[in-house]
Structure formats: structure tokens, C-alpha cells
Design a protein around this nucleic acid. Structure first.
Length: 850
RNA sequence: GCCUGGGUGGCGGAAUGGUAGACGCAGAGGACUUAAAAUCCUCUGACCGUAUGGUCGUAGGGGUUCGAGUCCCCUCUUAGGCACCA
């Protein structure tokens, strides 16, 4: 009597089994080869799991299950990136503690992920909002602080009035907030900044050795934006000062006809002439009001004003007018440029607009090349005095040498990368473990030997000035961590952008004891004279912080003495495989590389790079071929698929849709084929007779070919073609009344990484007591991969005219003779002269005839 | 504007320079059934032909090659990234 394929019962049974037996726990030290497969952990949103999540998770799961069956000690963990804006917004709207909402979202995500049957070691689950976790996020921050990589600055930052939040450069897209697409403006605010720029060179260098998608590497290279050139000093007329500019084209120096400074450039204060004062101030005010969207819009014609001042050309002494324009950015280089309108498109446009002189100093090497001005390529110098006739490359070196000799310039490397704005005026983030004290108290702390506050004290103190008073940053000691997020009733930031934490005065205002490191609320009154007043930092860290090092925490999630146990990280090293969306190509992946590299530099981890091998799964589009979104109403819910078709079907279908890296649309009808495949598998095993006999040659051949193909395809992440091969194999087996035990078991084992539940069930029905996970993956026998005879296609002039069957070891002359007399080929050869015979063994014969 | 990927049947897709369209969906016909669903079998790129078969065909145009979806050049198109970075 045939039982129907009851996927719900089967799947829940085995999920329970795996959970109870901790089937997928990873050993920290094992003689087996190790493999660490890492998924980008999800942000547990209120919307629940999205169809895109299981795509990458299934891929890493198939790989994990396969390698486990190949004898590897596999670590495949999961966790939650649970700090973030949506939970905070929810708290603001409902007034409920984001901890409550976050906990329930995490529970939902865990339940949903477990219902898909991933081979995850749940004992290693991490959560960035857990104080046991963020204790170490704070610790790493303090290490950066200690190493002078964290500082504060009052600088104009992006402020989004709608979100009431400051945003990082990276969170602005097209002049709008990445989240919510709200307008943003500049506002000066005291901010924590991490000196990622100090790591620019290291981050660039190591990129080369990573097994990453090329496009992602290219994006990071572009983001870091290393450029090589020179800083050139132009002495300002009637002044002691110089105006320094950065250029990547020192070879065009003799073609510089004017200078332009950014409207924010401090030099304007002193050099602007009285006649031009009003015009310059007016222009400065106008640009301050402009959004960056307006300011960087290339379509806009350039604007600018003359400052009235001149600077001397460092080589000729020629006076060059200094202009002001917002096409020069204060944040890059020195905020000033030399303009060579003949050889730069932007300078050319500006020079034309304001009738500034244009002087050509480069001509093309090849006279056929279009030399229309502006000519922006390299070439041969002209109108450049002693440098005439030199190539751009030679001239660049000669000119920089001359500038350096005269103290008028120097070689310089610049990066497009900006320092990382690391503070948020938010509640739902890691508190920054810093208190602020006055100048005298700070000096006292420095003079206190053995003070716990000296543990993370940097060599260069971090301070800021407010109301004529200086405040110094004092780092909490590691024993004071975690600095827990205090409970509050009110979540919105204030209108001036201060964090909600700033309102908790009993938390913010504290006494600290320099000798003991104790901290007490100031609400309680000063305990004794030794205690000094301090104020806590009220900013929190951005969401990126927790995801910068979670790959390490999985290794030793309960470690109480370090972010990661040194012995255990020595064992696991770094994830062997990391999979996640391409949208993280620069932000998360650059920040995490920075933190990880820093941890390497201070000896916490043994590897320079966190993710040696990276893969991006392509997004799954809605059935209409558009990105899934609530507003389009094309969202596919994984829960509904599991309900109607089962987790095995969901897993298989997501992998069968197409190549893992491709962007591909969902098709609700397509999953029918997968369901049929699973039902046929079920039915086949309940009917077929599995005996000790042998299979026919054809069956053996197909089985061993399939084993090879599936193994290779899993290793190459070509899951769609692996599944196709399993379908071909089943289509064949289905026709047989009986199969051997080896064949019966092999097919199920090949399918098991993809559809683990049904395979566990069938495995059990085949008489096994232990989980299929424990069974070694089948090997192919290469004797079945070679054939005695092979079909060869015969072409005449490249057109297929017939086929012949020849033995694999047939001599070439025999093959050609057989091809020549082949019935369907003969008519095409008759009366023609064969001028060439091409024979590719085991593949093709081609006769070239006249 | 610049830098990357893509463009193959009605659809998702498969093809180490060597039989284009594997596998699956959808569609057509048939078997089973009182009937439907499910299942199973056959067919299914276009055109011509009763048929053996032939011609065309991988966005378009050129090229290399005995042979090109695959390599090279140009054009169109689409997705992603960057965008006054001096």
C-alpha cells in the first residue's frame, strides 16, 4: 500500500530530530578537515522572512551538507543583525521598548528559518543587540580609540530632518536618504569618526588576493579611489601664504591659467579683495543652501565668482587669477585646484564660460588622433619651455623633481575614501563606552597610575570645545563592559538631533572615580572629593558596527575573555565561503574588512582578511519581472510556499530557477515541476524493489556520470544543472522494476543536500537507523565513465550530414573511412573533391569539399 | 558621461570553439476515469515538404576559423555600479 507524500509530517519530523540530536553542531577542534560556510546574517524585520533570504541560505546549506558528507567538520551558523532603524521607528511610533519588538522578530525569523531545514548549529546563534555580544563590539571600538583610530569632530554632516538622523555618506543615494528617500541637508554636529582612511592602502592591497566577484572588487577599488599625483604650492600675491592644490597631471602644469577654490575654503577669508567681497559672500551663501544633489548635478552649467586675488605660477611666476566655484569640493584633496582648460573638460567648460585664457601644452603622440581642445589624454609636451618634447610620463617626473627641489611641491597619493562617520543620534544601537570630563579632571586621570580609565587611553587625547570649555574623552575600562543601553520611555530624538539617551540625565550625568574606575549617577550626590564629574557619550554606533565582526563571534559565542577565543580562531581561521547580496559590495564588506584587519594588526585574529571567498546570489524578482515590493503586490511569501509545497520543494525550486548568481524571476507554475519530481521520487521508492542484484550497464553508467556531475556542480555552485541531472537520473530509474541497493542509496544521497527531509525519510525506509547526514557521500567509479563506442557527428563544410558509431579506440583512418561511406553523408561528397578532413576524436568529423 | 555584467524557443534556462535548445514550465494529442483532478505515454524553435529530407535560426552588422551562442571589432538594447574626486 502506497503512502502519499506527506511533506508536512516528514519535514517537521526530521527538523525535530535534527534539533534534538544537535545533528549539525560543529566541533571546535577536530582532526577532520574544517569548513566554515557563512551567510550574511539577516536584519530581522517585522515583515518576516523574504523569498530572497532562503536563496543564499539554501546554497550555503547544500554546500555545508555536501562537505559534511565528504567528511568535513562544518561550521554553518546563523544570527541576527538586530540593531537598526526600523525597530527604532517602531519604538517611536508605538512607545514600546525595541527589545520587545526585536525579540519577537527574531523568534519569527528563527522559526521560519528552522522550518526550511537548514543544517545550522543553533548553539552558536548570535544577536548583535545582546549585551554579551555588544560588550565586544564596544571593546573593539575602545581598541580603535586606544590606537587613535576614533576621534570626534564638529563637522558638517548629513542630517535628514524626516528621519531625525545623521547619515553616513554611504547612506545618501542621489542626494536622498537611502532609507525612505527623504531629502537631506548639511548640518555641523559633533560626531565620532573612525579613521578608515588610514587603512585605505591596506584595504586596497589585500583585495588582490581575494576570491571575490570581479565587479565587487572593482567597486571597492573605485570606492577607495587611490590616485597618484602631486601637491603644488602657488604663492599668493601680496601674502606670505601659498595655495596648495592637488593634481594628477603635473605634466600639464605649464598649461595652468587660473586656480579655483571651493566656496568653503578658509583662504577666501583673507585673500578676497574688498571689491569682490560681496560677490564672494553672496556666492558662498548660495552654495551653502544648495543640496548636494544640485551641486553635483553634471547637467548644470558651472557657476563661480572671481576672488580678486592672484597667485604666482610656481615655475613661471606668472600671475594666475583665483576663482571660487562649487565644482571644486572642499572634502577632496586640498579644496583647491589648478586649472588647465586645454586638457580638462571641466576646466575647459569653466574657462569658456568666464572667458579665461586657454593654453595648450600637450599634443597627441599620434598625429592622426583628434587633438581637439580639451584634449585630456597623455601625449607630448609643447609650450612648456625646457619640457617641450617630453612625454607626459617623463615630464611628470621632471616637473615634480623640479618642484621638490624648489620646495614648491611634492609627490602625493590621494584617496577618494572618506573617514567613517560612526555615531548616530539614536537609541537602538550600541552605546559608545566613553565619558567626557573637563580639562583638569582629565589631567588628574592621566596622573593616576593604574587607573582603569587608562586601559584604552590613546596617545593623542580626543577632545572637543563647547562654550569655551574643553571636554576630554575618557574610555571605560574593559571591566565596565558591556555598557548597557539604559531603559527609557521616550524614543524620538530631540528636534536639534540629540540622541534620546541625552534626555536620561540620571544616566548621562555621573561621578567617576579615577582610581577605582567606578561610575555612579550624579543624582545620588558626590560620594567624596576623589570623584570627578563626567558626562556620558549619548551617541550610539551605526548598524554596521555589529556586522563587522560577527563572523568571529560564531566561533566562540560564549567566550567571556575576548571577542573570539584565540585558540578557536586559530582553528577556524576565517569563513571559507561567504554568501550574500551584492548590495553590500562596498559598505558592509569594506567596514568588516577594516575591523577585521585592525583586529589582525592588534593580534586578535590570525588572518588579514575576513572573507577570502565571497559569492553574491542574484536577487529573485516577482512574477512580473520586477523587484518584489509590497507596493507592487508581487511579493512571494516563503511561508506560503512551505505550507502548500513543502520546504524541500522551496529549496529545490529556488536552486532550480537558474544560475545562483543570476537575477531571475519567480514563476509560481514552475514549482509544479519540482513538486512532481519529489512526488515521483517518493512513489518510485515505495514501489521499486531494491535488491542485492546488479544494474544494467546503462544504469550504472548514468548513475556514475550523475555522481560525478552532482559533485562537480555542487562544488562549482551550479545547483540548477545538478538538479537537472538528478531529474535525468530519476527519469531513467523510474522505468526499472528493480534497482541495486547501491543505486537506490546513491540517488537519495545525491539528492539529500538539496531536499534533506524527504531523503532522511526514504533513507530510514531503506533500513537505516542513523541519519543520512552521517553517511559518506557516494563516489563514482571511473570505469563507468568511459564507453566502448561513441557517436560521432559527420559534417560536410561545417553542416551536419549524419552520424556514425565508432569504438572509442578506433584508428583515425577507420573513423574517416566510416564517415566517408556513411549513407546520409555520401550524397554530399559525390562528385566533389575533399580538400581537408578534420577529425576531433570522440566528437566530430568534418569534410571540407569544393 | 565612465566602468561592469547580460541579450538563446511561448517562459525559466542548458551547451570544455565541435549534434544549439539538456532539464523544467506552458501548450497539443492520447491512455486511465461515468467525469474531473492526479498520474502515465507521445509531440512541441521557425519555414517548406505526405515523407526520407531541406532551408533558416542564439539582439543586429562585419571578421577570425574546417567549424562560432562561445573568440575579435562596430552598433543597438537591458541590468547594476560610479558620477565635477582635480
Amino acid at each position: 500500500m502506497e503512502k502519499p507524500y506527506d511533506f508536512k509530517t516528514i519535514e517537521e519530523k526530521w527538523q525535530e530530530y535534527w534539533r534534538e540530536k544537535a545533528t549539525f553542531s560543529a566541533e571546535n577542534f577536530s582532526a577532520k578537515p574544517r569548513y566554515y560556510a557563512l551567510d550574511m546574517f539577516p536584519y530581522p524585520s517585522g515583515a518576516g522572512l523574504h523569498i530572497g533570504h532562503p536563496e543564499g541560505y539554501t546554497a550555503s546549506d547544500i554546500l555545508s551538507r555536501y562537505l559534511r558528507a565528504r567528511g568535513y567538520n562544518v561550521l554553518h551558523p546563523m544570527g541576527w543583525d538586530a540593531f537598526g532603524l526600523p525597530s527604532e521607528q517602531h519604538a517611536i511610533q508605538t512607545g514600546t521598548d525595541p527589545r520587545i519588538n526585536t525579540r519577537s522578530n527574531v523568534d519569527t525569523f528563527r522559526r521560519q528559518i528552522q522550518r526550511i531545514g537548514f543544517a545550522i548549529d543553533w548553539s552558536r546563534e548570535v544577536n548583535t543587540t545582546d549585551p554579551h555580544y555588544y560588550r565586544w563590539t564596544q571593546w573593539i571600538f575602545l581598541q580603535m580609540f586606544k590606537h587613535n583610530l576614533a576621534f570626534v569632530d564638529k563637522r558638517p554632516i548629513w542630517w535628514c530632518p524626516a528621519l531625525k538622523s545623521v547619515l553616513a555618506n554611504e547612506e545618501i543615494v542621489d542626494g536622498l536618504s537611502e532609507r525612505g528617500r527623504h531629502p537631506v541637508e548639511r548640518r555641523p554636529m559633533r560626531q565620532w569618526i573612525l579613521r578608515i582612511t588610514r587603512y585605505a592602502e591596506k584595504l586596497l592591497e589585500e583585495l588582490d588576493g581575494l576570491d571575490w566577484p570581479d565587479s565587487t572588487k572593482r567597486q571597492q577599488i573605485a570606492w577607495i579611489g587611490r590616485s597618484q599625483g602631486a601637491e603644488v604650492d602657488f604663492p599668493i600675491r601680496n601674502s606670505e601664504k601659498c595655495l596648495s592644490v592637488y593634481t594628477t597631471r603635473p605634466d600639464t602644469l605649464l598649461g595652468a591659467t587660473y586656480l579655483v577654490v571651493a566656496p568653503e575654503h578658509p583662504v577666501l577669508e583673507t585673500i578676497t579683495t574688498p571689491e569682490q567681497r560681496d560677490a564672494v559672500s553672496d556666492y558662498q551663501q548660495k552654495t551653502a543652501k544648495k543640496s548636494d544633489l544640485d551641486r553635483t548635478d553634471l547637467a548644470k552649467t558651472k557657476t563661480g565668482v572671481f576672488s580678486g586675488a592672484h597667485a604666482a605660477h610656481p615655475l613661471t611666476g606668472e600671475p594666475l587669477p583665483i576663482w571660487v566655484s562649487d565644482y571644486v569640493l572642499m572634502s577632496y584633496g586640498s579644496g583647491a585646484i589648478m586649472c588647465v582648460p586645454a586638457h580638462d573638460a571641466r576646466d575647459f567648460e569653466f574657462a569658456q564660460l568666464f572667458h579665461l585664457p586657454i593654453c595648450q601644452v600637450i599634443r597627441p603622440v599620434d598625429t592622426d588622433v583628434d587633438a581637439t581642445i580639451p584634449y585630456c589624454e597623455r601625449g607630448i609636451l609643447c609650450n612648456s619651455g625646457e619640457y617641450d618634447g617630453l612625454t607626459s610620463n617623463a615630464a611628470r617626473e621632471a616637473i615634480i623633481d623640479c618642484l621638490e627641489a624648489g620646495g614648491m611641491g611634492r609627490r602625493q597619493v590621494n584617496y577618494r575614501l572618506r573617514d567613517w562617520l560612526f555615531s548616530r543620534q539614536r537609541y537602538w544601537g550600541e552605546p559608545i563606552p566613553i565619558v567626557w570630563v573637563g580639562e583638569g579632571d582629565f589631567a588628574a586621570i592621566l596622573r593616576t597610575p593604574g587607573s582603569p580609565f587608562l586601559e584604552f587611553m590613546p596617545s593623542e587625547p580626543v577632545c572637543y570645545e563647547e562654550g569655551g570649555q574643553k571636554f576630554y574623552a575618557v574610555p571605560l575600562s574593559s571591566t565596565a563592559l558591556p555598557l548597557q543601553l539604559p531603559p527609557t520611555e521616550s524614543y524620538p530624538p530631540s528636534d536639534d538631533g540629540e540622541s534620546p539617551l541625552a534626555r536620561l540625565d540620571s544616566w548621562v550625568s555621573v561621578w567617576i572615580h579615577p582610581q577605582t574606575g567606578e561610575i555612579r549617577s550624579r543624582a545620588d550626590g558626590r560620594p567624596s572629593d576623589e570623584w570627578v564629574p563626567a558626562r556620558r557619550e549619548t551617541n550610539t554606533m551605526p548598524q554596521w558596527a555589529g556586522s563587522c565582526w560577527y563572523h568571529l563571534r560564531y566561533m566562540s559565542p560564549a567566550c567571556e575573555t575576548a571577542p573570539v577565543d584565540p585558540k578557536i580562531v586559530d582553528y577556524w581561521r576565517a569563513p571559507d565561503f561567504y554568501i550574500g547580496g551584492a548590495e553590500h559590495a562596498v559598505l558592509h564588506l569594506l567596514y568588516a574588512r577594516f575591523w577585521h584587519r585592525f583586529l589582525y594588526d592588534i593580534g586578535v585574529v590570525p588572518t588579514k582578511e575576513p572573507y577570502p571567498r565571497l559569492f553574491h546570489q542574484g536577487i529573485i524578482l516577482g512574477e512580473d519581472g520586477e523587484k518584489m515590493s509590497k507596493s507592487r503586490g508581487n511579493v512571494v511569501n516563503p511561508d506560503a510556499i512551505i505550507q502548500s509545497s513543502g520546504a524541500d520543494a522551496l529549496r529545490l525550486y529556488e536552486m532550480f530557477l537558474g544560475p545562483l548568481e543570476a537575477v531571475k524571476p519567480w514563476d509560481a507554475r514552475g514549482i509544479e515541476g519540482i513538486i512532481r519530481f519529489l512526488k515521483r521520487t517518493w512513489k518510485f521508492y515505495s514501489e521499486v524493489s531494491v535488491d542485492g542484484g546488479c544494474d544494467g550497464d546503462e544504469t550504472q553508467r548514468l548513475l556514475h556520470e550523475s555522481i560525478r556531475k552532482v559533485r562537480e556542480d555542487i562544488e562549482g555552485l551550479r545547483f540548477n544543472t545538478a538538479i537537472a541531472q538528478l531529474m535525468i537520473l530519476l527519469n531513467h530509474l523510474q522505468k526499472l522494476p528493480r534497482i541495486s541497493r547501491f543505486t537506490a542509496e546513491s540517488f537519495i544521497q545525491l539528492l539529500a543536500p538539496f531536499a534533506p527531509h524527504i531523503c532522511e525519510e526514504i533513507w530510514e525506509q531503506l533500513g537505516h537507523r542513523e541519519s543520512i547526514v552521517r553517511a559518506p557521500f557516494p563516489n563514482f567509479d571511473s570505469q563507468w565513465l568511459t564507453r566502448d563506442a561513441v557517436i560521432i557527428v559527420v559534417q560536410v563544410n561545417g553542416k551536419r550530414r549524419g552520424e556514425i558509431c565508432v569504438s572509442t579506440d578506433a584508428a583515425e583512418s577507420d573513423v574517416l573511412e566510416k564517415a566517408r561511406v556513411c549513407g546520409s553523408v555520401l550524397p554530399h561528397l559525390r562528385g566533389r573533391e575533399i580538400v581537408k578532413e578534420v577529425h576531433v576524436p570522440h566528437r566530430i568529423v568534418n569534410f571540407v569539399v569544393h
